[in-house]
């Protein structure tokens, strides 16, 4: 029997004029590291790092569920809304969490769409952060699938989404963690994965902003898994090249959800990334 060190609480705040009740978890003390989950998932993707006592000895690892995800409810009136994440809405949410939690220049670690927004924040709000760890992150990819598949009355979007994202999980991932990773997609609320993918696959506004990122002030380290079909090593390399001074690490045996699908395999890459941050 054991009780984990992770604690969870709720932040009530306003984002773009809308009240949001945002669930966040944290573990550890010291340098704040704010972690962003992928599309269609939630904070549980980060649980292994939060339970890593060597990492949390010097780092306060914090993760939150985006509104509509995990334990963060959708806003009042959601029943008549179409959930579509936008770059601005995502940026405002991250900044509202930083303000709400009183974080002083955290490191921002984001995966997939979280990595994309980390790079947007590196370009647009670098003064709010100490550095950026962008995992499975790239400038832009159009969808290789139809995002409308994931929200239909005649099929289970969560099960379809999980089956689709399994294409991005490495065969080296331990089976239990592969399925834990997919479970989060299976649990995702109706239309939420689609709404996240709308941002991820349609907004290409990051591309012209990449050269503006000043890695002298805020380092950017990109990590990518070789089994990631969505953000391939080539996509990550292209992105890293467009950011003067950005560094890149390729993980040969990992996929698109490294911290969740294969925590042991990901750990050394994350520790290495932390050493590159101030």
């Amino acid at each position: 029997m054991s009780i984990e060190a992770i604690t969870g609480r709720y932040l009530t705040t306003e984002v773009e004029g809308t009240a949001q009740r945002i669930y966040f978890e944290e573990a550890g003390q010291g340098r704040p590291v704010l972690c962003l989950h992928t599309a269609g998932a939630d904070t549980r993707q980060w649980r292994h790092l939060m339970n890593d006592s060597e990492i949390t000895a010097e780092n306060r690892i914090i993760a939150f569920d985006m509104p509509w995800h995990g334990k963060s409810l959708p806003p009042e009136g959601f029943e008549t809304q179409e959930y579509l994440l936008t770059t601005q809405g995502y940026i405002d949410t991250v900044l509202a969490v930083i303000d709400g939690l009183g974080l002083e220049k955290p490191i921002l670690a984001g995966c997939s769409m979280g990595g994309r927004i980390a790079l947007q924040l590196a370009a647009r709000h670098p003064d709010r952060f100490a550095g950026f760890i962008a995992i499975e992150a790239s400038d832009f990819q159009p969808a290789w699938y139809d995002i409308d598949w994931f929200h239909r009355p005649d099929a289970h979007g969560g099960e379809m989404g999980a089956a689709l994202v399994s294409a991005n999980i490495s065969p080296y991932a331990p089976n239990a963690e592969r399925w834990n990773t997919m479970w989060m997609f299976m649990q995702s609320g109706p239309g939420v994965f689609r709404g996240d993918l709308s941002f991820y696959t349609q907004d290409d506004s990051l591309i012209p902003r990449l050269p503006d990122i000043d890695t002298q002030k805020t380092p950017v380290h990109i990590i990518v898994g070789a089994y990631d079909l969505t953000c391939t090593p080539e996509d990550a390399e292209r992105t890293a090249k467009a950011i003067p001074g950005a560094t890149l690490a390729v993980m040969d045996e990992l996929g698109h959800f490294p911290m969740s699908e294969h925590p042991e395999g990901f750990r050394p890459f994350f520790v290495d990334a932390l050493t590159k941050m101030p």
Partner: peptide, 9 residues
Amino acid sequence: EPGFHDIFG
């Protein structure tokens, strides 16, 4: 190998 691990790969 990467790419050969999935039908969509």
